[in-house]
């Protein structure tokens, strides 16, 4: 029986799709059977992030409207046979699907997978409501910025109102150097403000850009800090007790001291 987890954020562009792709990949690497669903109807993206855009024949709306069976629409990942993608429709809008249809869909997947991850659209309207309709758990992604944190708090309220239980939080794109200088909200600040359970800290990492360019998950990149962070989140979701990555930027402090001495001498 699958756990159905929706990844959402309120604000766009904070890393929902990247998070969904990487958690799906990481969970499948651990040996779980995983389906990832792109619920962003009309703005399909999970396929390109995962490098599966050339394999799409049918999409979520085709399944809901009976033109394809679920099994036909599920696309197998390039590397991991236990990982499948159900792509969003690109030429339809979010009203093409109802909450009840989403619940039916997730229930059909429940018996065949260990995890179903749903990539929610940004916003708090119908698309978001559809994305959480069938979810057992909700995972909120935010970045340490005022706009993203404010929107995340709105989502916390809506998730609680939908009786989904307390959502958990991933703080994405942390820049340790800025946090150390007191010029970026720290993970502690964000948790204190949102008062929800932390499940991941992901540092800002250029390897996300290069991996996404190639349509590969960053969790394959052994040298990437963000990749390591997403692997850790997947292990925590699976129930393991994994310590949070220390992002204290010792080097930054040293550089700052050296910089100061340099300036004094000059």
């Amino acid at each position: 029986m699958a756990r159905i987890i929706t990844i959402t954020s309120g604000k766009g562009g904070v890393g929902k799709t990247t998070t969904t792709a990487n958690l799906g990949t990481a969970l499948a690497m651990q040996g779980a059977k995983v389906a990832v669903i792109d619920a962003d109807i009309g703005l399909r993206n999970l396929d390109v992030v995962m490098g599966l855009e050339n394999r799409i024949v049918y999409d979520l709306v085709d399944v809901v409207e009976g033109r394809a069976r679920l099994r036909q629409a599920l696309i197998k990942d390039k590397r991991l046979p236990e990982l499948c993608l159900l792509p969003a429709a690109q030429t339809r809008d979010k009203d093409a699907v109802s909450s009840n249809q989403m619940i039916d869909l997730t229930n059909q997947l429940r018996s065949e997978f260990d995890y179903v991850l749903i990539d929610s659209p940004a916003g708090i309207e119908g698309g978001f409501r559809n994305a959480i309709a069938g979810a057992d758990e909700v995972l909120i992604v935010t970045t340490p910025e005022v706009s993203a944190v404010r929107d995340a708090d709105r989502i916390v309220g809506l998730v609680e109102a939908a009786e989904k239980g307390p959502p958990s939080l991933i703080v994405n794109r942390i820049k340790p150097r800025l946090v150390n200088r007191g010029e970026m909200l720290s993970v502690e600040d964000v948790i204190e403000l949102l008062a929800i359970n932390l499940v991941g800290i992901v540092p800002d990492d250029e390897s996300i850009v290069t991996s996404t360019n190639r349509g590969e998950a960053v969790v394959y990149d052994q040298t990437s800090l963000a990749g390591k962070a997403f692997l850790n989140v997947a292990r925590r979701i699976a129930g393991e007790d994994v310590p949070f990555m220390a992002l204290s930027d010792q080097q930054g402090v040293l550089e700052r001291l050296l910089g100061l001495f340099g300036r004094r001498r000059a």
């Binding site: 404010r150 007191g182 909200l185 204190e192 403000l193």
Partner: peptide, 11 residues
């Protein structure tokens, strides 16, 4: 520092 300002405004 701006992080402290952000935190207070958000609170």
């Amino acid at each position: 520092r701006s992080a402290q300002v952000a935190k207070e405004r958000l609170a």
